[in-house]
Amino acid sequence: MGRRTAEPAARLSWPVAVLAVTALAFLVLPIVGLIARAPWGELPELLVRAPVLEALVLSFGTALGSTAICLVFGVPLATLLARAGGWRALPRRLLRAAVTVPLVLPPVVGGIALLLLLGRRGLVGAPLEAAFGVTVPFTTGAVVIAQVFVALPFLVFAVEGALRSANRRTELAAATLGASRWQVFRFVTLPLVAPGVAAGAVLCFTRALGEFGATITFAGSLPGVTRTLPIASYLAMQSDPDEAVALALLLLAVSLVVLLSLRDRWVPGVRA
């Protein structure tokens, strides 16, 4: 908003500026390489191939689904995590570690772990198949499960940060003004954490969209069923690098559009 009084511009000292620009270059230059290498002439033809469209639709559908699931379960988990501040040290740290695990685990190992749990001989998968004849791996549902596993921490930590900044005393102030518990949540907590929830959902969605290792291990790779864009891109790299680059560009474009379109309204830090 333009009416904020201009603060004296905080000038960076030159070492900070140099390091920051280096870091930025490190992030951006590989993308520049990708764009420079792209077969622009054949791009339209490459992108309308049936397998590409199939992978695109599958990726979008599953990433949206897993983001929705992450929101439903992740916001309460973030609330628990934010309130765990008052717990004893051991359970508090265990809880935090449990949420962090998917971030540090190589996704392929995460995929193996999911197989050992939900696979046909898995702890839960075996009884599931015996009782209902349901098998989870190699289904589109398995893609969503793998995405939720790797993307959930992104949502939980973003929302937890927002919840922490939404001071508990702000909620108490609302109560002294006559707000019921529900009204406190509706008029104070929710609007204060909404930007964090939205930012978390965006991160979660883009992570789910780019998910590869856990998906290919747990869900496999069958066109139209479990072969998402990243897997299609990786496979294309084996035989047709141009198509792989085209697919990568598509992923990149989708992520950028999502991030840019949400930037002003939702991502925290823009608002005063």
Binding site: F138, T217, A219, G220, S221, L222, R227, I231, Y234, L235
Partner: peptide
């Protein structure tokens, strides 16, 4: 049911 990216998988 799945077409893997390598023999190991």
């Amino acid at each position: 049911d799945t077409l893997e990216s390598d023999v190991t998988a």
